[in-house]
Structure formats: C-alpha cells, structure tokens
Design a protein around this nucleic acid. Structure first.
Length: 400
DNA sequence: AAACCGTACAACCGCCACTAC
DNA sequence: TGTAGTGGCGGTTGTACGGTT
C-alpha cells in the first residue's frame, strides 16, 4: 500500500513538475564547499575516475547534489584548472572570441587552456563587459557629438526582455522556434536574435564569393525609431543606434525589422537586441569586419582619439599590431609572433583600453543610408580562421 | 566603529542535447 | 519510436569581502 502511495506521489511529481529533478535535494548541503568536502570528492575521483555524477555523492559520502559535485570538480578541483588572474593575452582572446560567437562560454573556454567556462563568464560579467560598455561612452572631447549611453536603461531594457532562459544552444530572447512554427518564411527570415555576428560573417562571406547572388547586407548606424517611442523609452542616450536590415539589395529593409527577401517583416520593439547584438556589431567594427568608407586607414585623427576599438589595418597586420601578434595554435598553445617587445601597441595591462582606439562618427554616418558597407576586407580575414567556407561561400564549420 | 555599497566569484537553477533502453 | 537518465551549458543568485561614508 505504501508503495502504491509512493508511486502515486512520484508520478504526480513528475506530472506536475515536468522532469524529475536531477537528485533528491532533501537533506543535501548547499553553499560553499568545505576543504573536507573537497578532499572527499578529490579522493573519490582519483580513485574511481570522473563520471556517474548522480551516484557519486552517495558513493563518496558527500551530502551534495551530483551536479554540484561535477561543478566543483570541473571548475576548481581538477589539476589542470589554472588559477590566478586572467592575463592580458587571455583577455584579448576572450574579447575576440566573444565578439565572434557571443556568450558561448564553453567554446571560449576551450581556447583558453586551464580556464573554465564559469571563470570566463564571471570575468566577462565583472570586468570586460563593463569596460567595453564604457568604451562606447564618449570620454574624449572628440566625441561630443555623441550622446552618452544610458547603461542602466540599456540593461533594464535587456533584462526586461529576458526571462530566465538558460539552456544550451541559442540563448533566445525571442522564441525563434515558436516564431518559425507560426510562419512559413523561415528560409530567409532573420530575427534580431538570429542576426548575430556569426550569421553576418557567413553572409559577408557569401557576398564576397557570390556578390550577385547573395543577399545584400547593410549595417546602418541610424536613429530609426520614432522620436516618440525613443522618448518614451528614455533611450535618447544611446550612442550607437545601429540597426540591421537585410533585404533583396535595395532599401526594402526596415529599421529594426525581421525582413525576408521581399522586405516583409515584423517590427520588433526597439532596443530588444541592443544589449547583445549591438555589442556584437560593435565587435565587428572593432575587428575590421565593417569598413567605413569615410574613414581612411591613414586618417590619423580618427586613429588617435578614442571612440571604439581601433580597426586593424593592413599596415597593422604587417607591423604586428593587434591579432597578428598573437596566435593561438591548434595544439592549444599561445604563439607570439612578435619577438621583440618594442611594439607600442601591445597590451600593457589587463585592459581592453590597452588596444588602440579610433573615432567612429556614427551619428554623422547615420544621416545617409547605406553608408556603412560590409566589406570583405583584408583586415577582416583575421577572423576567417573561425570558419570554413565552401566555394560558394557557404559557411559550414566554425573552428571553435 | 558601524552601516552601506559595489565588486568578484562560487554556486545554483532550469533547460537542452544526447544516449541508452 | 518514445521516454527517462545524464551531462553539459548559460543565466542568475547569493555571499564574502573590501572600500567608502
């Protein structure tokens, strides 16, 4: 009889709560691990090896959830976990990879030997994100034309759009799969969430390989939202109101829209994607993926004053500035191409500010359409190590 | 000295992909 | 083929700690 009751309870739990929890949390300890617990876990794994996390706590005599044991082992107890400050080289790699692939911490971590995804994620959230947001805020007299960024409002807008998403795969702000279910135009339709750096890279490559066939892509710095709406949202302070439009080659695309090949699309609210996507676009600026024809490589004024990360020029590539100086090999080793330490552009500390900066007069460029052109420039090729492309430009693999 | 505040980071949570059955 | 178990991932929270008022 009691078994029947237990079964009923278990079944009702499963029905009412979906999946059963990873473990019975009753009586389990939470919070910080003690050194005794660490030793018990380490001793057990050294004896029996990793795996079977569900049964491990019981076998090891730990009052912990299996997940908690796994996390503790992977992030802190393993011998190959590197402790200590993130180096400037590692920081540069994080910035670069994050610009290319976004919050895929585990992928980024694979390129940083000894670093865990959790550590990198924390480092990003506590150090780098702030720095990079700060760089978008005009700090020099040269940037007076640009209003300051209201970071608090940005974050508020971003967080208000996010539920507790979690999960692997695409970190959705918009339920894309649901979106796809509800319409038939999935082949050429892009949502803001889809419109990430990865997609843009692929499309840029397509453009390069088949300029006549591939979709036209334009990235335009623009204040495209209605004045009323912007005022309501108190987002007057946005410094980089870039929006993406993807159309059949003319100006069918609409600001902030998901458009298909016919220029049809559904408007989304402004700023939904700013928090992440603008940053990604910004990284593309930084990495030379977007080339402003009004900014010549030799424009020293632009290169000397700080608004945005400096685009590595072909000259930079030759002289060892930026990424050409630092390579990461397949074997997981850092390789410094620059054998002398005289380069004035090398990072002097753990700050993205150590890179060179340049001025991007986004406000001015926003006044005309299509002023930002995506170009497959020589400089941009430093990012092409990240993907494979077939002859027709189809991206089929990310080297991450 | 105490209260407050911001930061860093360890840990937790929920979800998803994969796999075995 | 469907389902449950498991590992893994990314977002978020909790808290210790140092600095400031």
């Amino acid at each position: 009889m009691s078994t029947l009751v237990e079964d009923t309870i278990l079944r009702s739990k499963k029905i009412s709560k979906g999946r059963a929890p990873c473990c019975d949390k009753v009586g389990l300890k939470k919070g910080r691990w003690t050194s005794e617990e660490d030793k018990m876990l380490t001793d057990y794994i050294q004896l029996h090896g990793e795996g079977s996390w569900r049964s491990l706590p019981k076998n090891a005599g730990l009052l912990r959830c299996g997940k908690s044991c796994r996390l503790r082992w992977i992030n802190y107890l393993r011998e190959d976990v590197k402790r200590g400050n993130i180096t400037s080289q590692e920081e540069a790699m994080i910035v670069k990879l994050h610009g290319a692939i976004g919050n895929r911490w585990s992928v980024i971590a694979r390129h940083l030997p000894g670093r865990t995804d959790n550590e990198i994620k924390n480092y990003w959230n506590s150090h780098l994100r702030r720095k990079i947001y700060c760089f978008m805020k005009p700090s020099t007299s040269n940037c007076d034309t640009l209003p300051p960024i209201d970071i608090a409002a940005l974050n508020a807008a971003a967080s208000s759009k996010r539920g507790r998403s979690g999960g692997r795969g695409r970190p959705t702000q918009v339920p894309i799969q649901e979106e796809d279910k509800n319409n038939n135009n999935t082949s050429n339709q892009y949502s803001h969430s889809d419109m990430n750096a990865h997609d843009l890279f692929g499309k840029m490559h397509q453009r390069k390989e088949n300029p006549d066939e591939a979709e036209a892509i334009s990235i335009t710095g623009s204040r495209s939202w209605s004045q009323n709406h912007r005022q309501e949202e108190t987002f007057d302070g946005i410094g980089l109101d870039a929006y993406c439009e993807m159309s059949s080659g003319d100006t069918n695309g609409k600001a902030g829209f998901c458009t298909n090949m016919d220029g049809e699309g559904e408007a989304s609210g402004p700023f939904e994607w700013l928090d992440d996507e603008v940053m990604k676009l910004n990284y593309m600026f930084e990495n030379g993926m977007l080339v402003n024809p009004t900014c010549s490589e030799n424009n020293s004024m632009e290169r000397e004053h700080g608004y945005g990360m400096n685009l590595p020029t072909s000259e930079d590539s030759k002289s060892g500035v930026w990424s050409s100086e630092l390579n990461y090999t397949e074997s997981g080793e850092w390789h410094n191409n620059n054998n002398n330490n005289n380069s004035s552009s090398t990072s002097s500390g753990n700050s993205v500010y150590d890179y060179q900066w340049t001025v991007w007069d986004i406000s001015a460029s926003a006044q005309s359409h299509n002023q930002w052109n995506l170009q497959y420039s020589e400089e941009s090729q430093m990012m092409t190590c990240l993907w494979d492309a077939t002859a027709n430009g189809e991206v089929n693999n990310f080297h991450l």
